[in-house]
Amino acid sequence: MNPAVMSRFTNLLFASLLLAACSQADPAPERGEPPLAGASIGGDFTLVGETGEPVSFSDFDGKYRTIYFGYTFCPDVCPTDNQRAMAGLKRFEKDSPALGAKVQPLFVSVDPERDTPAVLTEFTDAFHPRLIGMTGSKEQLDKVTSEFAVFYSKGEETENGGYLMDHSNQTYLFGPDGEPLALLPTADGPEAVAAELAKWVR
């Protein structure tokens, strides 16, 4: 793993843990500045979407964006994280339809060997009708994950050719101008995700 990427991810993770501890100490914090305001993460990219056509991060300028990096063959973490994140988004959409419509959820697969457009479509449709899946070449993914402070690596193949992907599992929230805002607390369930969205989506 690139040491610089790992260092950026470790710093972000440490910061998010500190912020979580603060929020536990104060159950009703002021909205204030977003936790990731000013962080050097994110940036425009173009990958292949569910229709086989190019999809760019900037296609959704003007909207808030959630983004998660994982893979559809993930046995537990990815389905759980995406279920909670998208259930939280649905809850937020129900409570605030106009604001919920401003959020575009994205899923980036780090397993392009197996995650074809058809496979991505089946996966994303299981969690939210507006969740868009995409992937790209290893070179493209290396660049994007570096910019988004995400790590991933392919595990050893089994005798039958199967393998797992090791990857970070944070769900980012970005603002209308592509600026990083916060990490969605998927570990705390859909209600916590909806509450976090309500803090920053305006």
Rank of each mutant, 00 (worst) to 15 (best):
S137V: 01
S96M: 09
N169D: 13
Y71L: 08
K63V: 03
P185Y: 07
H167S: 07
E139Q: 15
R91K: 15
Y152C: 08
Y163G: 02
A182C: 05
G52E: 05
A101C: 02
Y68K: 09
G175F: 02
V150A: 11
F69W: 04
V110S: 13
G178N: 05
D95L: 14
F123I: 11
T171I: 11
P54N: 10
Y64W: 15
E147I: 00
P97F: 14
E179R: 12
Y64S: 03
V55R: 14
D125W: 00
G42W: 14
A126Y: 02
V55I: 14
E147Q: 10
Q170K: 11
A98T: 13
D76T: 10
S146N: 13
C78F: 08
T171N: 08
E122Y: 07
H128W: 08
E93N: 13
K63N: 15
Q104S: 09
R65V: 15
A87H: 06
L89M: 09
F45S: 06
E139M: 10
T124F: 00
L89Y: 11
G100N: 12
F60R: 12
V103H: 11
G155S: 06
Y68H: 05
P112E: 04
V150S: 09
L184F: 03
V48P: 00
G43K: 00
Q83R: 13
S153Y: 03
P75V: 03
S168G: 13
M165D: 09
N160T: 14
D59T: 02
G161T: 14
S58L: 01
G42R: 09
G136S: 09
P112W: 01
V150C: 12
L141E: 01
D61V: 09
V77L: 12
P176Y: 00
F107P: 09
N82C: 10
I67N: 02
P75C: 05
L181F: 03
G88M: 02
P79K: 05
F60S: 08
A85T: 12
F92W: 04
I67D: 01
N169G: 14
G162N: 12
S58W: 02
S137F: 07
D76G: 06
E139L: 13
P129I: 11
L141C: 11
G52H: 07
Y163K: 02
F57S: 04
D111H: 13
Q140K: 02
K90E: 15
A126S: 14
N82T: 14
P112V: 11
